[in-house]
Design a protein around this nucleic acid. Structure first.
Lengths: 224, 224
DNA sequence: GGGTGGCATCTGGCATGCCAGATCAGAGTG
DNA sequence: CACTCTGATCTGGCATGCCAGATGCCACCC
């Protein structure tokens, strides 16, 4: 028999709940800062303030919120420069993942990456189904990183995506970039299959760096 | 006048204190797991358990400790595979830093990197002053990342170094690697000065990947 | 003596209550 | 009418106390 799970604590539940809630809300659309209230949260979640506070301490460590002593807890808004910076770090991690994949992953797992985009093609263009393609895009990148079999790379990119995702509607939602995106992905998969380490690394890096450049150039309106 | 500082909370102080304490102790030398006790800590630090618990929640989020419900708080020990994995992520971040530096940093700041090793040379070999060189090594890598002017890269590598540093005595302390280390560093600085983006990136990546390979091959004794 | 059951005790999880800083409305003042 | 001062109130920070799970010692039984 397996040791039974030490059922999840309120702290962990509160952490998950708050994280989901923060990610779901569009913090960049409202002009005034989004505030959290410990007491209101403890009311709503039906637990005392203690586990709520511990969950908030974790979120603060993660950079999602910031506690202003005696003033409130505010959901952190990233500046454009910070988002660009994060995407660059993402590019670094993903290119390393690509490198590792060429040396360790199984051919069939690499090929399976194509399935993510099986609903798209010349007869069904990504730019005509932006929402759906954006989701496929995220899935692809996460699947790619997973193939590296590196838990650290997976965790770090998850952290980054967490923060970058707040922009997904607007950063990915540009037709010109989306049109270029699919062929780039397919080229990456090919390089991985060919075990061309340097090329795969370069393609992965440049693909994501292009997103960074794009946000840097066109992301201004998000921060008005 | 500037808004005066909201003096540091006990939570923050406890976090810093615990972090320092954990990093100072050599968790890999003792056979049995290192445990923390909330009440003992609150006694020793002169505060109640509440801020201690919040600090521990943050450390847990950071991956330094893990709370086992009703059993205790244990300082996490990394496996060799995890350390190797972290070093690979480090390599990814550092190569991206190198890339950015070639496009943005000032020449004089790059050249200043040489000062870190000014006490070493053919008349004073690194392998004869291992402790000192190890410190210079860390300083060099952190200074390098800083030059990228990317807060995200800096923070992420700081996190990684936090975990990897527990091994500093044994991973860096091999004469054969240290002898090769200094020339590699100098080659990196040269490539940066020459604004040779691809070369600098490659040198930075390979330099750190070699450390990963080294730990993978020779780090076994650490985990006996 | 080996094995078992139970209780004392230790540990983290959580609820609660008080405190001080921060804010803001409204009375009081020139 | 503008400004200031004050206190009611709101918010997070912290201390304290109780609870239940986990452990380990020890009396007890066969």
């Amino acid at each position: 028999m397996t040791r039974l799970a030490p059922e999840v604590s309120y702290k962990a539940k509160a952490y998950q709940a708050l994280k989901q809630a923060i990610l779901k809300m569009d913090i960049y659309t409202t002009p005034e800062p989004v505030m959290l209230d410990e007491r209101a949260l403890s009311d709503k979640l039906g637990v005392s303030r203690t586990p709520i506070r511990e969950a908030i301490a974790m979120l603060e460590q993660e950079g999602l919120v910031k506690a202003l002593p005696r003033r409130g807890i505010v959901v952190v808004r990233r500046t454009k420069a910070e988002i660009v910076d994060m995407i660059r770090a993402w590019a670094a991690l993903e290119s390393m993942a690509a490198r590792l994949i060429t040396t360790m992953a199984r051919k069939r797992d690499i090929t399976a990456l194509r399935d993510v985009f099986k609903d798209f093609g010349s007869d069904r263009l990504p730019q005509d189904h932006i929402e759906e393609y954006s989701r496929a895009n995220i899935v692809f990148h996460q699947a790619l990183i997973s193939l590296s079999e590196s838990p650290v790379l997976v965790d770090m990119t998850d952290d980054i995506l967490l923060h970058v995702r707040g922009y997904r509607q607007l950063t990915i939602g540009r037709k010109e970039r989306i049109a270029a995106s699919l062929p780039e992905h397919l080229a990456m998969i090919e390089a991985l299959e060919e075990r061309d380490t340097d090329l795969a690394e370069k393609l992965a890096r440049d693909h994501t760096l292009r997103l960074a450049d794009y946000v840097e150039a066109h992301g201004q309106e998000l921060f008005a």
